[in-house]
Design a protein around this nucleic acid. Sequence first.
DNA 1: CATGAATGAGCATTCATTCAT
DNA 2: GATGAATGAATGCTCATTCAT
Lengths: 195, 195, 195, 195
Amino acid sequence: MAREESKFEWQKSMKLLREKAIEIFAEYGYFQTKISDIVKAANVTQPTFYLYFESKDVLYKEIITDFQTNLEKIIDESVSESNALQNSKETIHVILNRMFNYFSLNPDLTKVGLFESDVPTASKILSQKLKSVVEKDSRFIDEDDIVLHIFIESLIGSIERLTLSALLSEKVESKKLAEEIVNIYFAKEKSVVTA
Amino acid sequence: MAREESKFEWQKSMKLLREKAIEIFAEYGYFQTKISDIVKAANVTQPTFYLYFESKDVLYKEIITDFQTNLEKIIDESVSESNALQNSKETIHVILNRMFNYFSLNPDLTKVGLFESDVPTASKILSQKLKSVVEKDSRFIDEDDIVLHIFIESLIGSIERLTLSALLSEKVESKKLAEEIVNIYFAKEKSVVTA
Amino acid sequence: MAREESKFEWQKSMKLLREKAIEIFAEYGYFQTKISDIVKAANVTQPTFYLYFESKDVLYKEIITDFQTNLEKIIDESVSESNALQNSKETIHVILNRMFNYFSLNPDLTKVGLFESDVPTASKILSQKLKSVVEKDSRFIDEDDIVLHIFIESLIGSIERLTLSALLSEKVESKKLAEEIVNIYFAKEKSVVTA
Amino acid sequence: MAREESKFEWQKSMKLLREKAIEIFAEYGYFQTKISDIVKAANVTQPTFYLYFESKDVLYKEIITDFQTNLEKIIDESVSESNALQNSKETIHVILNRMFNYFSLNPDLTKVGLFESDVPTASKILSQKLKSVVEKDSRFIDEDDIVLHIFIESLIGSIERLTLSALLSEKVESKKLAEEIVNIYFAKEKSVVTA
DNA sequence: CATGAATGAGCATTCATTCAT
DNA sequence: GATGAATGAATGCTCATTCAT
């Protein structure tokens, strides 16, 4: 028993460092986060950091990749779950619900993954996925590409901003937020009713 | 003559430095912009920089304040111009039109002012101003504050994102973009018709 | 049985570590050899290294001392073997033959021992020993010390360089090399004939 | 006048740093030379070092290249000067004379350039140049390549070693040293007579 | 005999900023 | 108005070495 425990001991510092790194990256951003800050928060010394992570940069990218992988999985699951649904409105609603739920459970990771400046790949994922959901909607079949593009990008902008200023600030809970966004973007269709 | 010349020469370096700073800040962001890059681009030496600006930080804030002042003025003018109008839809439309026009004329300044991470004051201005426009709308008088907050923040998110991915990327011109955003956010009302 | 096995197992890691250390020191030199490299090559962990060796430095010096001891023995044996010979030429020839033979059988150890920069003690040994052989030669009895010194040092330089660029590079075999060096340094006397 | 002086002022720290670097590299070798040592010796701070040199590594290579360039020039000049001479003996003598003279005037640079471990390019230069001088000698026209190779490499070894243990240690002056080496390597021909 | 985990001490390099001219 | 020269203060990263198990 004790043996098995010690076998996973190595994860202790590593996990702790990663957690603290996420917290501090979330609060201060990449450039203002010093490795000395991270190790101080984790109560280890600098060389220990390099025992587990190649560099500050690599850790940062690992974290972001993590977030993106999760994000992608969530969207894909939502889409396949609501596969039977005919309109994109309901699919988007399911996606938003799950996504915001994930975001609120991982606020710091979300901050890092969604608002990192240099590599806006989370946005790219959102862009792709949402586009493939919405473009089948009858509402856009006669419109040109630009209108669809604007709709999607607008939606992503809303998601990003509201995640920060409503969800993670704990002003609005995820369910309500998803509902209201759907109400805005699918106003012409009949309103969503809260369960 | 020599005197008059120097009258115009004066601050030549200062203007050039500020211009180059805006360009480079826009491309690389605050932390990845080195003063040595700015002065190199302006063909002066480092001490010259400190002749005109107190520090990197202060220059950055000056630039952002500049942008914010302009932004505020534009919104205020738009509001007073469309004062007679009864519904917020038209007012927002006018604001967006003018704002996007300004943005597309000052792409680099906009990038710096709108997407600087640390001090989201541009967003605050937008938030305040748009709120005061929209809250009079009949659509929100029966709703609670949260719904209004979400509407405003969603709109700001859309504006920010579309500024980057549609306007400054030159995929959509300002007029069209303003129109489409209004169509999304005021879908229940009758559609905007292009002039 | 298990006991006997461990009797042979004992120092298995030690020998392996020393061997790998010699290889890596030979290839990369003292400063560019990391203990982590050595233990990796020996498939053990870092603390195991310190189980057998006090430090990197001490191991290095042990290796060099090893080489020097062997070198000294080889020269001494050669000298006593050719004790009867009247001229230094033959003695030198025997020394070179044996020495080069030893070098070519231990190329990595030779590289470390002969070309370590900081402590040129191998050279000192060569210097001493060769001097005591040559100084009895009639050729030098009337000359001043300087000429003898130059002769010895020149010979050592030749040995060192040719060890690297002819012997260990496998361009020339030890016997031929010894012969040619003698031909150069004892040209006035009648030429050595290959056996 | 003062103006012209200040125009070359920038060379002051740079030259001083390079000089001190050569001294310290010569004494301690590349790996044991810290930039902090160099700047301390030159009485400047670390950033000043980077004002003039890209890195420790680049400076080191610059120094070595410097030495090699000079070495090459000296040999080439010696060769063309003694062009009329029929035998390689005299040419080698001239080369050695000039070379040792240069070495004794630049002892530290020579130590760095001639005994740097990683990049034995100085040796390569010597090898090439000396080979082209000697291979025309009647003495080698009937011999195989190996004998020539051994002769050259032996000579280089002698030069390197004696430079350190006779010339730079100030035991022998350059003229005498050149003469004695020639006496060793061209013993069959009639002896060189000191001027 | 061996190792997982950790660290003290150091090192090259960078960058905003300043002073004398 | 402008610059040549210099620096204080960090910061990321490395490596030999050790301790508890």
